[in-house]
Structures are given as C-alpha cells and as structure tokens.
Amino acid sequence: MTLPEALLLFLAGFGSGAANAIAGGGTFLTFGAMTLVGLPPIVANATSSITQFPGYVTSALAYRVEIRRDGVTAAKLAVISALGGLLGAVILLSLSNPSFRAMVPWLLLAATAIFAAGPWLKPRPRGAHAPVGPLGLVAQFVTAIYGGFFGAGMGIMMLAVLGLATGSDYHRLNAIKNFLAMVIAGVAILVFAGGNVVGWPQALVMIPGGALGGWSGVWLARRVPQAVIRALVVAIGLALTGYYFTTG
C-alpha cells in the first residue's frame, strides 16, 4: 500500500464516518475507495463491514437507554438479524469475485435508489409502540440477509421495515436500527474474518478516519443541511454505479 493509497483510504474512512453521522451512505465511500486501490470486490465489501462496525457500536451505545427500554423487541429482532446477517455473509463467500463483480453495479444502483428515497421511507410518528408481527420479522430477516451480503442502504431499509411493522416514532426505530446494524455487521465480520477475505491493512488505515469522521459529523450535522450531504452521497453512488457498469 502506497502513501497516496493510504491517504485515500483514510479520507474515505473520514468521509464515511461523517456521512453516516449526518445522513448515512458511508459504505459507498469505503467500498469505492477500496476497489480503487485494487482490492477484489468481495474483499472490499467484507473490509467495508469492518470499517463501519465501530460507528454502529457508538451509535448503539448512544441509544442504550432507548434500547433497554425496548429490550424484548430488540432481543427478538437481534436473533432474527443475526441469522439473516450470517446467511447473507455465507452467500457472499460462496461467490467468486467475477460473479460478485457482475452483481456490484446492480447492487449499487439499488442501494443508491433506496438511499435517495430515504426521506420518503422514514416512518411518520404515530406514537404507537406495537410489537413486531410475523411479517415484520420476515421482512427484517430479508433485510439482514442483504446487510450481511452487501450492506449499502441497509439502515434506510430497516427504518422502512420497522416503521411499517410497528408504526412507532422515529427515535424508537432509529435506536433499534442502530442496534440491529451492529448485530448484522458483527456477525458478518466473524464470517468474513474466518473466510480470510478481509483486507486488514486497509481496514486499520480506515478505522481511525471513520472514528474521527463520526465525531466531526456531529459538528457538521449542526451546520450542513442533510439534503446537501444526501445529494453528495447519491452523486457518489451514481458515479460508482456508472463506473462499474462501464468497466465490466
């Protein structure tokens, strides 16, 4: 790894942490940067899960009071999410790099569309604290499979699924979402590490950048409109989609 590559990875980690703190979409930056420095698509995707994980942990800790208050629902969904994340990660490892590479532009296009639609997918506060029914559990299982397999746009998908399943207020759902994202990423990391598909040197460069970006993102969130950050992330997602479609 050259010094310019290390700098690119650190900046991508920083931008990812900041974007996730403000509007989400950090995976676009980490995955894109790692493929640009030459990591195979599966390794780049697996390593991206590593770099995102610390942010999920700190977000879950910030919501620990809300999560404890909703402990039964969170625990039930965590089991479902762990199983789905495990399945998604195993499916990823069963593919060859060329096979996954062929899927990447379509995955990026879908994730970009989901992320762009985020403001319309967020649940409307209705005040109810309804339990998650069977359909909600199935939908979360499918979302967790996607999260373990690829992950970009997973947070928005979970907010939409949980909102439709429970009709609860946004902050309750966001707390559960952050906790479940941590569970899904944690399980996927164990599978990827066991499968020897993690670029550890790249991850070690990006993680400090992500931590610093996450801290700075709180400062930026008070000064930069989320719409501006969202538009930038969507532009990056579309650029990456175009790149992978045209270089296939």
Rank of each mutant, 00 (worst) to 15 (best):
T47E: 04
L61A: 00
A139Y: 04
A89Q: 12
L162G: 03
G163R: 03
R68Q: 05
S49K: 08
L164F: 07
P105Q: 04
L83C: 05
Y146S: 02
L107C: 06
M158I: 09
S94R: 06
R124A: 15
M158R: 11
I91A: 11
F141Q: 03
W120Q: 15
A89W: 13
G127A: 10
A89H: 13
P131R: 10
R124E: 15
L159R: 07
M158F: 11
P119V: 09
P131G: 13
A130W: 08
F53G: 01
P134W: 08
K76Q: 13
F115Y: 14
L109N: 13
M103L: 14
K76I: 15
V142T: 04
V132G: 07
L159N: 10
A160F: 12
R124G: 14
Q52R: 01
L137T: 14
L95E: 09
P131E: 09
L164H: 02
A46I: 12
F100A: 04
S99K: 05
L108K: 10
T112P: 15
S94Y: 07
V79H: 03
T73H: 03
I67E: 07
G136P: 08
I91L: 15
F115M: 10
W120F: 15
P98I: 02
L109T: 10
L164D: 01
Q52L: 03
A160C: 13
G88W: 04
F53L: 02
L137A: 15
I80M: 04
G136I: 09
N97K: 11
S99T: 09
I114E: 09
V142M: 03
L83A: 04
E66T: 05
A62R: 00
K122H: 13
F115Q: 12
R126S: 13
I50R: 03
L93I: 10
G147C: 02
I67F: 04
R64H: 07
L93M: 14
A160V: 05
L121T: 14
L108Q: 09
Y146G: 01
L107H: 04
A113Q: 13
S81N: 02
F100E: 06
F100N: 03
G163P: 09
V79K: 02
V161I: 10
S99F: 05
G55C: 02
V138D: 08
L135D: 14
M158Q: 11
S59L: 00
